[in-house]
Simulated assay, not measured.
Amino acid sequence: MSQSSFKKILSPSEVGAKKMNDRYLTFKSKVDYIKFYGKTSPVRINHIDKVSIEQYTFRYDNAVSNGEVRLYEMGLFYAERGALPGDEVKIEKKVIDGNTFYEIDLLRNGISTYYSQDYSLPDEVNEDNAKGYPEGYLKSVLVNKFERSIKARNECIDYYGAICAACEFDFEDKYGDIGKGFIHVHHLVPISEIGKSYKVDPINDLIPVCPNCHAMIHKRKPNPFRINDIKERLEK
């Protein structure tokens, strides 16, 4: 049985700390990466970021001159996740209905380094939390991950601020530095109505809300309450 996942601690040279021209990942020799990827190198392989849901294409080569097996051209992934020497890259292979997905994550002390939360937003489900759902639901979660974009989330917060659009709660004001920048981002267009060609507009499609208001918005299904609906209830 081939390995379904692996972890690799990053060296300084891999993330560019030693002025390397490329950012890469060197595999441990004990892992059968030829079976893991099932491809003849050199070839480009798509990987889905577990946290941001962004797709990255890395160049895979199992015939480097010194015998190493590597993924190349990982600079953008490392930069956007803030990779440092000693961080750990985890890659997981998932096969669903004959389709193979490679999911990549960057861990620091065992925790995702970028926008990691130990819960799912009301309109967001990740594949770990979906294991109890039917197989078809899990497939939908994996295939439709395109919409979960950290960049869009950040642009929304940059525009509106990290303040709830419904109740105006400010986590930094109430909790100090631990609350700085913390907020949920609500999709004004329900995820279930979004098609594959949909491109999120961070300003018109997203709105920051606190967890309490976010939960109340999604108390009504399948059509969530509007922001103004929640505002009106708070004003009573």
Rank of each mutant, 00 (worst) to 15 (best):
F77K: 01
P190W: 10
Q55K: 14
V185Y: 00
T57P: 02
H218P: 01
R59D: 07
E147P: 07
G16V: 06
D173P: 09
K28E: 12
E92D: 10
L142F: 15
C156L: 01
Y115L: 13
A130N: 01
S116C: 11
N99Q: 14
D97C: 10
G67W: 05
V200A: 05
L138D: 02
I53D: 09
I157K: 02
V185P: 00
I157G: 05
S52Q: 04
R220D: 15
C213M: 05
I227S: 10
Y160D: 06
S120H: 09
T100V: 12
D32K: 00
Y78V: 00
L106C: 04
R23H: 09
L121Y: 10
K7A: 06
N46V: 13
E155S: 05
K18Q: 15
P12D: 09
A63E: 14
V185Q: 00
V95W: 00
V15L: 08
Y33M: 14
I157F: 04
N46C: 07
D97T: 06
I34C: 06
C164L: 06
G67V: 04
D118K: 13
I9T: 14
V69S: 11
V189K: 15
K19I: 07
G181L: 07
P222G: 04
K196M: 10
R233L: 14
D22T: 11
L76T: 09
F77T: 01
Q117F: 13
T26P: 02
F182G: 04
F101Q: 06
L142E: 01
S11Q: 11
C167E: 01
A130Y: 01
N99P: 05
R153E: 08
S149N: 05
I48W: 08
F182Y: 13
S140V: 12
H186N: 03
E103P: 03
A152K: 00
P134G: 06
K139H: 08
N228G: 08
P202C: 02
N204T: 03
C164R: 07
S120C: 15
K50S: 07
F146C: 02
F171P: 03
Y72A: 09
E172I: 00
L84N: 11
C164Q: 08
H186F: 01
L142I: 10
P12Y: 08
A162H: 03
P202A: 04
N154Q: 11
V51D: 09
K131T: 12
Y37L: 12
Y78L: 03
L25Y: 06
R23E: 02
L106H: 03
D49P: 02
N99E: 14
K7N: 10
N204E: 14
S52F: 02
V200G: 08
F101W: 15
